[in-house]
Design a protein around this nucleic acid. Structure first.
Length: 448
DNA sequence: TTTTGAGTTGTTCGA
DNA sequence: GTCGAACAACTCAAA
């Protein structure tokens, strides 16, 4: 029987410009694409109506249809990856396995297991960079250690992008590192077979949510204006591509090419994405502990009632509440408001950033472990590149700056301005002082 | 090794 | 209303 290669899709739910798929197609055997609905992950989700699962299911179905239209098929499994692989090895004459790097701690462990299993049968496991522009070992300080401050990291990132190892021309938009992988040239190398069924959401224990997903396409005009409009939550000024980056339905190389041409501030956001992925890969403890350990000495108040009010958008601070309601209703929150709500929870309420991080992880469509823990630790002051701890966002000042005509607030808080809208649960100035004291207490302990 | 400049996105106060 | 300085002190990166 002729051998086949398996290409394992994970955070790269697309056929075009896919590094691992490209290499699989150029390899020695016909290629069978695979996706596994991983019960290690799915069983932990608290809501059976989870838009992320629905998003994945929709896009896996799209891939399966695209492949069927080319006379090929996709294998969609549901189970524990290590067990699925044991079964696949019995069912198919697998000669090689290809996939793209996945940097989260769980993913790393999972891949190590699969790699060992395959190696025990003499099957090579080839993996590629696809999810980021530069991986953790590519941008390091002169002493070889990883950066922990963004700005010097970003300088080196840009320098490497412009370095063109294949020629002397230096044009970031045309960088060697941003070239696409022309998979479509090799689609004839897909394994020819009748389509296999894709398990239904319901069969896996999930139901549809009715949430609508942001489009994959974003206008050039929006990216061009990004630096001017991105801070105003009432304006449609951000790309909303987070969920597509998360699941790889778009190519980060393609978007970085656009950004390099159209808007430097937008490119910077993509560098932040690489930065936090690099931080998580180099310092996996940031998923559960403060990057700077002394910040784990802060005595969080962790008042459950106040946490509940924050989750529900009933703190009495309109910008905070509007953000939390937007999150609950749509699975999305504007970035400016993410910072304000996170600062409010950690600093005004003195609630552990991990509580807020977990809530965002549960609700955000575009949830990404690296960026979420990075962002929360930035807000709490415990992360890389942390702001000075006396930098406490004033939720009213932020509102006046970024939603001056209250358009965003009225959109999400219909009762704003009536007696039905709650009074603030804490007074700003007083809470600010309480926060500064709590932080000072914790940080002074270390010095002694 | 030592030194120097800098550090995403802020707030408050007083002139 | 606008502007600059203070907020505290530390750690990082690079010369």
């Amino acid at each position: 029987m002729e051998k086949i290669s398996v290409f394992w899709h994970r955070r790269d739910l697309r056929l075009h410009d896919n590094a691992g798929l490209y290499h699989a197609l150029r390899g020695p055997y016909p290629v069978l694409p695979l996706f596994i609905f991983d019960t290690h992950i799915l069983d932990k989700l608290e809501d059976k109506a989870d838009a992320r699962v629905e998003f994945i299911h929709d896009h896996v179905s799209v891939l399966a249809r695209e492949l069927a239209s080319m006379g090929s098929t996709m294998l969609v499994a549901h189970g524990k990856p290590e067990e699925v692989w044991v079964r696949l090895l019995q069912q198919y004459p697998i000669g090689a396995v290809y996939t793209n790097h996945d940097y989260e701690p769980y993913a790393h462990e999972r891949d190590e297991k699969v790699k060992r299993l395959l190696a025990s049968q003499g099957i090579p496991f080839y993996t590629y960079k696809d999810h980021v522009i530069f991986e953790r070992q590519e941008i390091v300080k002169d002493d070889g250690k990883p950066y922990t401050v963004f700005t010097p990291y970003s300088r080196k990132w840009r320098a490497l992008l412009a370095s063109r190892p294949d020629s002397a021309v230096s044009d970031p938009a045309a960088s060697f590192y941003l070239k696409s992988y022309p998979t479509e040239r090799y689609f004839s190398r897909l394994w020819r077979a009748a389509p296999l069924p894709v398990p239904s959401l319901e069969a896996m224990g999930f139901i549809r949510t009715g949430v609508s997903f942001p489009p994959m396409q974003v206008t050039q005009g929006l990216i061009r204006q990004y630096d001017k409009t991105r801070n105003f939550p009432a304006v449609n000024g951000t790309s909303r591509l987070g969920v597509h980056f998360r699941f790889g339905t778009i190519s980060v190389r393609e978007k970085a090419r656009h950004a390099a041409k159209l808007n430097d501030t937008y490119l910077n956001e993509l560098i932040w994405r690489d930065f936090y992925a690099m931080i998580l890969a180099n310092f996996p403890h940031v998923a559960t502990q403060a990057f700077k350990p002394e910040y784990d000495l802060i005595e969080w108040r962790n008042d459950e009632r106040e946490f509940q009010l924050w989750c529900e958008g009933r703190t009495g601070y309109p910008l905070v509440d509007a953000g939390m309601r937007e999150l609950a209703a749509t699975g999305y929150m504007h970035n400016r408001v993410r910072m304000v709500t996170a600062s409010f929870l950690t600093k005004h309420l003195l609630i552990d950033w991990r509580w807020g991080e977990a809530w965002f992880a549960r609700k955000l469509l575009d949830f990404d472990l690296a960026s979420n823990s990075g962002g929360w630790q930035w807000a709490a002051g415990s992360g890389t590149d942390a702001a000075p701890y006396f930098r406490v966002f004033n939720p009213l000042a932020q509102q006046e700056k970024f939603d001056p005509d209250l358009a965003y607030i009225r959109r999400w808080i219909p009762e704003y301005g009536t007696a039905a809208y709650p009074k603030p649960i804490v007074e700003h100035k007083w809470a600010r002082e309480r926060c500064l004291e709590a932080y000072r207490r914790a940080l002074q302990q270390v010095k002694k």
